[in-house]
Amino acid sequence: MPAKIAQFILVLTLSPFLFGVLNRTKAFFAGRKGSPLLQLYYDIFKLLRKGAVYSTTTTWVFIAGPVVSLSAVITASFLIPWAGHPAVIQFDGDIILFIYLLGLARFFTVLAALDTGSSFEGMGASREMQFALFAEPALFLSLASLARVTGQMSFSGIFSTGVINFWPVYGPVFFLVFGAVFIVFLAENSRIPVDDPNTHLELTMIHEVMVLDHGGVDFAYILYGAAVKFWLLGTLLAGMFLGASSRGWMMDSAVFILQMSVLAVIVGVVESTLARLRLLKVPHFLIIALALSAVAFILTMRS
């Protein structure tokens, strides 16, 4: 039990750190020094100390947006295992609940965006919904492949069996699943090449444009929720390279945090080397994820 509480707290405290690593990587590629590793913490604390400005158009839905989405993401974090150790809550089928909790978060973010009555935010909301449409089946199919290979139906079951032991037999499957989940990961966390987290220009914006009118505590909630979501989905990627846990909780955790940092570096490299896709090409990109996950699933059925 103490370990579970510790890992829950670690997820909540460490997740903004990954963005620091990511931004440092991008700065390195751009030849800049970059912001401090703890920049996101500073940003969040700064925002928490601010007052609030609300649009005269908005209603309680606008405030419910950040609150519900952050809560949904935090609740979803109960289900995600830590370093091959079972999650706080685990049960068969928690995969479904996890994806739908992320859906709940998206639902309210989109409604909060529409509540402002601004065309820009409407545009972002519309695009967010469109991209989620393709990302969700891809994620489901990928997890179905993992469930079939490992014979488990919960995240804790899948990721604490030492997934890395399956690689020699199911190498191609894992390779494709990793590719599919990575694409979904980039899309869900609004990274390049799907979305550009740094632009505030209306035509390229998807996620950033939806939260344009949020400020103060609400915006802090949104930033923090995004960081936790990045960590949770990243766990699915890192988890595919986990061995069976045997070296004790402390050691496992250290290795795991290292893995997550490596993931952040990889995302940074991807962001620095790729250009953002044209908006009309994004569905195509996500369909690739869907195709990869479907092929992976069919590959699990051989023999």
């Binding site: 928490l48 100390r49 007052g51 609030a52 609300y54 609150v67 952050l70 809560s71 935090i74 909630y221």
Partner: peptide, 25 residues
């Protein structure tokens, strides 16, 4: 968790200025 975040939000905002303004145009 929703109740906690709402309470947290309230405690952060207590004593701070809340203004209303048209949506950013």
């Amino acid at each position: 968790v929703v109740v906690l975040t709402v309470l947290l939000r309230r405690s952060f905002l207590s004593g701070r200025v809340i203004t209303r303004f048209p949506t950013w145009d």
